[in-house]
């Protein structure tokens, strides 16, 4: 049995979980179904949403907040951070627009999480 804290919502349930031979998972301590899904991925391939910022060429908004559009493997976060550090945005993009593709690293893309470049720059 492994102790986990479910990070799906602010409740942060303390889980006890173990994989079953048939590829499922035994979980206690969860208060909803999402705890089961979380435990299964956490024990097999932990996933996280990565949130960060990228540089822009606009003085009024030097940094633009971004995130991955889905959860990515936890172990890939460092590699994605290195990709983000090399990016400079020079176009006015909107909240939700793609900033970069993660193609080479894992599935998914980086999206902007604010409209700041669209107004007041």
């Amino acid at each position: 049995m492994k102790q986990l804290i479910c990070i799906t919502c602010p409740a942060g349930c303390k889980l006890l979980a173990e994989l079953t031979p048939d590829g499922g998972v035994n979980v206690t301590g969860n208060t909803c179904k999402r705890g089961v899904d979380f435990a299964l991925t956490e024990l097999t391939n932990p996933m996280r949403t990565l949130c960060s910022t990228v540089r822009t060429s606009f003085a009024a908004c030097p940094m633009l907040p971004v995130r991955t559009d889905r959860e990515i493997p936890k172990g890939k976060m460092g590699e994605v951070m290195r990709l983000l550090m090399g990016i400079v945005i020079d176009k006015k993009i909107a909240c939700g627009d793609a900033v970069a593709d993660l193609g080479g690293i894992c599935e998914g893309k980086i999206i902007a999480t604010s409209d700041w470049l669209m107004s007041g720059v």
Binding site: P10, R67, C95, T113
Partner: peptide
């Protein structure tokens, strides 16, 4: 607050802070 976790109750989504404000 560029991290996510905002709006789980209101929108059923884990938004970044600026996204929630937007």
């Amino acid at each position: 607050c560029v991290h996510d976790g905002f709006g789980v109750i209101r929108f059923g989504e884990k938004l970044a802070g600026p996204e929630y404000a937007q």
